[in-house]
Design a protein around this nucleic acid. Structure first.
Lengths: 252, 252
DNA sequence: TTACTCGCTTGATAAATATCAATAAGGCCA
DNA sequence: TGGCCTTATTGATATTTATCAAGCGAGTAA
């Protein structure tokens, strides 16, 4: 893998506190690869072979059963995914596919396991990462069970706005049908819910959603850190550049 | 805490592999307490003070938002809960209440954290425990998003039967209204779904549910280890297999 | 026993959500 | 620029699920 990718990985919570020799040895074995859009990286039911770290692009976690399919989450750089399957040595519960061309670092699970055993700081970080993932899914389950679809959408919009420093306007990071599936609804239902939110503090123009009245939107969403996640605003975190945003979408 | 409780704890996956001195030191600080039914042990939003181990009785994990409330899970002996909040030092996402008189061992989180740092075997076990919890919630989210309420109920009945060695008759472990909430439906809906399942391989008499035609029930539930959890039957624990079952039936 | 809970069931109705079909809109490419 | 393909929207309708309001029934205390 390229040397200029390592500092990005090193900054991740998972790798930040581990000992340098452990990190270096993992980096020696790891390799970075570019995948085209719409590529199935992981299929549910298979066993973990690599810990994945997404450096660039975006990856969608989804699950299917009995001919139905649903989006379980979307992973953006820089973060890891399927750590749980690596630790547990059990089959993946979700599939993963690239949404766009993506740069991904692959670390063989066997080496991750060795590193976990050897480096207790790494183990602690992995534990924290897993606990975080656990909590994220608890929140998702709460969201599904306690909110209806309109409330979920409202909360999603508010949350996205929050994440970009309370920006009034957000741009949906994925196609609407994917967002719909992510929120546990049909595309038609999402479309109607978007319309319903207009007149409740929101203006929608294509992928661009503008909050005109935060209070009214919040009255529907009733945001709650125990469900929407800690409010980690990202006003100043911009060390990573997104090249050519206008051309960065759609199938490859 | 009583000495006769320690072996039970020691047998838990979380404590099984840790070093004896670490275990003993935790046991010295831990104390066991009996709680009456319907007692709120943990309130969502608060911070973890103790790792809980349920020895006897049963505990319900639930979550509330905006005046609504839902059952997120039920914990039976012998197992631990809220490890994630202990590790992460973040507020609980769920509340916990006893369903009946329960015996619970409490271990101060500070000591758990020290033990995690000192004993890498314990850390690995905790990691596996967290990964398992993570996966459980991924499955719950899949269940909610991919199945409708009738299918969830059918799957629940089959799963309970499986857990007791494919017994034809199971006795619901909790009141129906709690089960309804657990399955993400109203009591009325559960009642009607139970009735709907009669004539599809199930007979219901109060808390007693008998499977008369497993195939018909399975045709509704379409069981899947990636959603319903590993099939750990009570009588014998099968050796781990890693074949790739192509159980993902398309269209149904 | 009677009366009283409390949870379960049932029926009627309403709301939420999905499905199907058709149209509109947007990006992409020749 | 127009044509093509995909996604998004809209309308009509069906299905699923929730709500409200009785009624039922087992367990319990007086």
């Amino acid at each position: 893998m390229r040397d200029d990718e390592k500092p990005n990985l090193r900054r991740l919570p998972l790798f930040r506190e581990m000992m340098t020799p452990t990190f270096d040895s993992l980096m020696q074995i790891a390799y970075s690869q570019s995948f085209p859009a719409q590529l199935e990286l992981i299929r549910q039911g298979e066993y973990a072979d690599f810990l994945h770290v997404i450096i660039e692009g975006s990856v969608e976690l989804h699950a299917s059963w009995n001919g139905r399919d649903t989006v379980m989450g979307i992973v953006h750089p820089v973060s890891t995914f399927i750590l749980a399957a690596c630790v547990y040595d059990e089959p993946y519960l979700m599939s993963a596919r690239t949404l766009e061309r993506s740069q991904i670092v692959l670390i063989p699970v066997a080496d991750v396991r060795v590193a976990l055993r050897r480096d207790s700081d790494f183990a602690m970080a992995a534990m924290r990462e897993l606990a975080g993932g656990y909590r994220a899914f608890v929140r998702q389950a709460k969201n599904l069970k306690l909110r209806n679809s309109l409330e979920r959408l409202a909360a999603y919009i508010l949350h996205q706005s929050c994440r970009s420093g309370d920006a009034a306007t957000i741009v949906l990071p994925v196609e609407k049908r994917h967002l719909a599936s992510h929120l546990g609804m049909t595309p038609e239902n999402l479309s109607r819910s978007m319309k319903a939110l207009q007149g409740h503090g929101v203006v929608v123009q294509g992928m661009r959603v503008t909050i005109t009245d935060r209070a009214r939107l919040a009255a529907i969403a009733v945001p709650d850190p125990l469900m929407d996640g800690p409010v980690i605003k990202a006003p100043t975190v911009l060390p990573r550049r997104r090249e050519m945003p206008s051309l960065a979408r759609k199938r490859g």
